[in-house]
Design a binder for these strands. Structure first.
Length: 355
DNA sequence: AAGCATTACAACCGCGTCCCG
DNA sequence: CCGGGACGCGGTTGTAATGCT
């Protein structure tokens, strides 16, 4: 099989022998690689230039860090992946001595599975849709129907209580903000108001599980949409991305069998009154996240548009569906979807607004 | 111990982008 | 502007190593 870059030579493929490695290292350390397509000839290798480049970058380069990923590196990968998606080369830039290939392999073989095991969609970092219950909706709009067929983390359900029991059995990781529900993460125990996506639901019940104990808490529903209505979309998007980041940082997740997304006004306040939204972070980690966000801002217009396109595509998959008629669905979607708030909505009772 | 399944990771392939004539 | 070569990236495949029955 010929290669474009070196079609005239007969080319070896497959694993590299120690002798080949030695030749390549010798050549590059003395001459540099210059034009990769000329490297095989100059180094006396029967390889494609591309293959040489890959071998050098991913394996032979002296500045590579070998060995397994540390916990901290893993966290960085997850943090940055949340912002950038599968842009392995970009992610690898935040991990000195690691290559894009290495990061990608680690993601696919390890992190992905961990996230799935936690009930999180590794692509969106939101709750997995596998928990949703299909086929019971009596929804009428076409939009709503199509949403149900997506991988939405939200489900529309008029399921019976016995089905709800199934929800309760699930190990749905409920991620919340450090300042929100989980007592171990709260810095202020007052003003503890959860926000439910159910406009008409008056009570939200949430079980907080921390260190083996769990506490059932009930809150009035402050009507999610109206809580945000006075803010502009930009600030909400920003807020959303901050929430998203912060959620990823929790040392442990709380379980939320109800599937309700919850914030509290303390959290909202701190997001609105902080410069970064990341005040609670360990400094190096906060800096890293801020750096990624900043890089994102500074990306060329084209790349940025492409990225945002991807985000929108992801968001397409996250549509909630039609809520009650006066529920500002688009608003909630634009505000909350980027931060993965929240999914897996199963009704607490059967008279909810998912008509 | 053998054979099969799974995992980890090295390597390849195709495509998009950039650059230069 | 266009065409072609080189490069970089991300998805995918191939395979050695490891685990399991």
């Amino acid at each position: 099989m010929g290669h474009h870059c070196c079609s005239k030579q007969k080319v070896k493929r497959g694993l590299w022998s120690p002798e080949e490695d030695e030749r390549l290292v010798k050549h590059i350390t003395t001459h540099g690689h210059g034009c990769w397509s000329s490297v095989p000839k100059l180094a006396g290798l029967q390889r494609c230039g591309k293959s040489c480049r890959l071998r050098w970058i991913n394996y032979l380069r002296p500045d590579l860090k070998r060995g397994s990923f540390t916990e901290q590196e893993e966290r960085v990968i997850i943090d940055v992946h949340r912002i950038l998606g599968n842009r392995w080369a970009q992610i690898a830039k935040h991990l000195p001595g690691r290559t894009d290939n290495e990061v990608k392999n680690f993601w696919n073989s390890c992190i992905k599975k961990k996230l799935i095991a936690q009930g999180l969609d590794p692509n969106t970092h939101n709750l997995l849709s596998s928990h949703k219950i299909n086929g019971h909706s009596n929804s009428t709009s076409a939009t709503k129907m199509s949403h149900q067929n997506t991988s939405s983390v939200f489900s529309i359900s008029t399921s019976s209580h016995s089905n709800n029991d199934a929800y309760l059995d699930m190990k749905t990781p409920f991620v919340t903000l450090p300042n929100c529900l989980s007592p171990s993460h709260r810095t202020n125990s007052t003003n503890h108001i959860p926000i439910s996506l159910y406009e008409n639901s008056t009570i939200t019940t949430t079980t907080v599980a921390t260190a083996g104990t769990s506490t059932a808490l009930e809150y009035p529903n402050p009507n999610f949409a109206s809580s945000f209505r006075n803010q502009n979309t930009h600030s909400l998007m920003e807020f959303g991305s901050r929430c998203s980041m912060e959620m990823a940082t929790l040392p442990s997740y709380s379980l939320n069998p109800s599937g309700f997304g919850i914030l509290d006004e303390n959290c909202i306040w701190s997001c609105n009154n902080s410069t970064t939204g990341l005040e609670g972070f360990e400094p190096t980690r906060r800096d890293m996240i801020m750096q990624v966000q900043q890089d994102q801002q500074q990306e060329p217009q084209q790349a940025r548009a492409k990225f945002e396109g991807q985000q929108n595509t992801n968001m397409e998959n996250l549509l909630i569906g039609n809520m009650s008629s006066n529920f500002d669905f688009d608003f909630v979607e634009s505000a909350l979807m980027p931060c993965g708030l929240y999914g897996n909505v199963s009704p607490m009772d059967d008279q909810l607004a998912w008509d």
